Lab assay of single mutants.
Amino acid sequence: MATGGRRGAAAAPLLVAVAALLLGAAGHLYPGEVCPGMDIRNNLTRLHELENCSVIEGHLQILLMFKTRPEDFRDLSFPKLIMITDYLLLFRVYGLESLKDLFPNLTVIRGSRLFFNYALVIFEMVHLKELGLYNLMNITRGSVRIEKNNELCYLATIDWSRILDSVEDNYIVLNKDDNEECGDICPGTAKGKTNCPATVINGQFVERCWTHSHCQKVCPTICKSHGCTAEGLCCHSECLGNCSQPDDPTKCVACRNFYLDGRCVETCPPPYYHFQDWRCVNFSFCQDLHHKCKNSRRQGCHQYVIHNNKCIPECPSGYTMNSSNLLCTPCLGPCPKVCHLLEGEKTIDSVTSAQELRGCTVINGSLIINIRGGNNLAAELEANLGLIEEISGYLKIRRSYALVSLSFFRKLRLIRGETLEIGNYSFYALDNQNLRQLWDWSKHNLTITQGKLFFHYNPKLCLSEIHKMEEVSGTKGRQERNDIALKTNGDQASCENELLKFSYIRTSFDKI
């Protein structure tokens, strides 16, 4: 039985969820670079991206490699990797027998973001014989899940209580170790020597080791999670996991709180800001991140802002960003909400898709409305799209047979046209069989910064309504002859009103 693990408890099935942008060198404390989270699957090609990484700022997932063999891993080693800020997950990587050479110096898994409450997941690794993470000293947050690894031993010899604050939620089941077939031998045991430290858990006094050649490092209890030197002297209180010299914040392997210019500090002093819960960055760093993602459509890219001495992905609820200094300031009234469309555009074809934009005031991208039916549609669209004030790209209304009016965009005031449909149009209306009105132009103002209007096959939309939009939106004169079809717009509506004058002759039985 794995020490510190839980057996036999019912657990939810383990679901495996399925960018080499360097964020800056980590400095003297770390020998390499800070790398983003990685999802490495199918083959070993991307694994080489770990070569210079000291910190993975995010998670590391290595999974679904069915053609790899043990010899493929023999020359692979990433000794610079010290810390993973989120979680480490391995799933069905064939041929991998140990992690001792792959990650010989991995010391800390912070667990800032977890995989279903777990910071370390080893699942269905069919050839893994031992973990071998002999320098792993601290899992700051989260638990361990090690399950269905039929060859995995050296679990009962690990004292997880020396690595985690609590072992109650560890789930370590259905491994070879369960069948008591392992016969784990710690260093020196074969020669009758006791080389590794022994600890007591559940009444068992057991030597602690990761492999037959690597003991588990056990520091004096007084050192807590700070770690200790090879001689057993406690590291500085700002260290986490390990250090090369005692009581020196510049000799830590990793930091308990924050890293700044080669030393570990309790908090980031001005003019620095907390970033990702582990390091200090200056304003320029946060500003660069903001600008890199301002026009990016890459998933996970955030326009970072500053709030409460932190550089964070977005302002919290009730705050909006001051564009001059990136500071989050309290909103006066309802907060603006910028919604970034991942692929640059979004099609609204149902109430469900409209709900995804609920509360958005600025759309960074283009909207395509293609709704053919739905219950209580006008009210639903207004509830979900009615706060949109600005669209950076274009607005396209296409084959939306259920629409009679666009009044559900009740606050839309600006279409920038930074991206144009077919390279020309910022407003595009095609084949809307029941569209009769755009907006009530006596109450609604709309500016279209650039781009043209396109109207074709809107049989109940009168040309007068379209011409009014040209005047109000500032697009009059931009359109070419064929942009607004004269014969297919309003051709099934009563669009022309003329005053009919009647004269009559009164007659009676005795007068003409």
Rank of each mutant, 00 (worst) to 15 (best):
Trp160Ala: 01
Phe285Val: 04
Gln299Cys: 09
Phe103Asn: 00
Tyr171Leu: 04
Phe73Ala: 05
Glu238Asp: 11
Leu63Glu: 02
Leu133Ser: 10
Asn179Val: 14
Asn52Thr: 12
Cys335Ser: 05
Ser98Thr: 07
Val93Lys: 00
Leu174His: 13
Leu326Ser: 06
Ile82Gln: 03
Asp169Gln: 09
Met125Gln: 06
Phe115Gly: 01
Arg208Ser: 12
Gly32Glu: 13
Asn309Arg: 08
His127Ser: 15
Leu60Ile: 07
Arg256Gln: 11
Arg162Glu: 07
Thr199Phe: 12
Asp184Pro: 05
Leu106Tyr: 00
Leu99Asp: 00
Pro334Gly: 15
Asn309Phe: 13
Glu168Trp: 15
Asn43Gln: 08
Asn43His: 06
His48Leu: 12
Tyr273Phe: 13
Cys182Lys: 09
Ser213Met: 14
Asp165Leu: 13
Gly318Trp: 10
Ser324Ala: 08
Asp72Asn: 14
Asn202His: 10
Leu240Ser: 07
Glu130Ser: 09
Ala156Glu: 03
His307Phe: 08
Ile312Arg: 08
Tyr272Ser: 13
Asn257Asp: 04
Asp178Val: 10
Tyr87Glu: 00
Glu97Leu: 07
Pro270Gly: 04
Leu155Gly: 05
Met83Trp: 02
Tyr87Pro: 03
Leu88Val: 11
Asn195Met: 12
Asp75Ser: 08
Leu99Cys: 06
Asp177Arg: 11
Gly203His: 05
Glu238Pro: 00
Thr85Asn: 04
Phe283Met: 06
Asp288Met: 06
Pro104Gly: 02
Asp184Lys: 04
Leu260Ile: 04
Cys301Tyr: 02
Cys243Trp: 00
Lys80Ser: 12
Asp159Thr: 11
Arg46Gln: 06
Asn170Ala: 10
Lys67Glu: 06
Thr267Arg: 03
Phe115Ile: 03
Gly227Ile: 04
Ser244Asn: 10
Arg279Gln: 12
Pro220Gln: 13
Gln204His: 03
Cys315Val: 01
Lys148Trp: 09
Ser225Lys: 10
Arg298Lys: 08
Gln204Pro: 10
Ile56Lys: 00
Phe66Ser: 08
Leu128Ser: 01
Arg145Ser: 07
Val253Met: 05
Asp178Ser: 07
His236Glu: 10
Ser213His: 09
Ile109Gly: 00
Thr157Lys: 05
Asn257Gly: 06
Phe91His: 04
Asp39Thr: 10
Lys191Phe: 12
Ile146Asn: 00
Asn179Arg: 06
Asp75Gly: 03
Cys196Gly: 08
Val121Gln: 01
Lys80Val: 10
Phe275Met: 13
Tyr87Asn: 01
Cys234His: 01
Gln276Asn: 03
Asn242Trp: 14
Cys239Trp: 00
Trp210Cys: 03
Ser77Phe: 15
Gly192Arg: 05
Arg41Ser: 07
Glu151Thr: 02
Ser98Pro: 00
Glu33Gln: 06
Leu120Glu: 00
Asn117Arg: 12
Ser143Leu: 10
Cys243Asp: 01
Glu51Leu: 04
Val200Tyr: 13
Gly58Ala: 01
Lys294Gly: 13
Asn42Val: 04
Cys335Lys: 01
Lys80Asn: 09
Asn105His: 05
His212Trp: 13
Pro316Gln: 04
Glu314Ile: 03
Lys67Asp: 06
Pro104Ala: 02
Leu29Ser: 10
His59Ala: 13
Asp101Lys: 03
Tyr259Val: 11
Arg113Ala: 03
Ile139Gln: 01
Phe115Leu: 09
Ala198Pro: 10
Arg145Pro: 00
Ile201His: 14
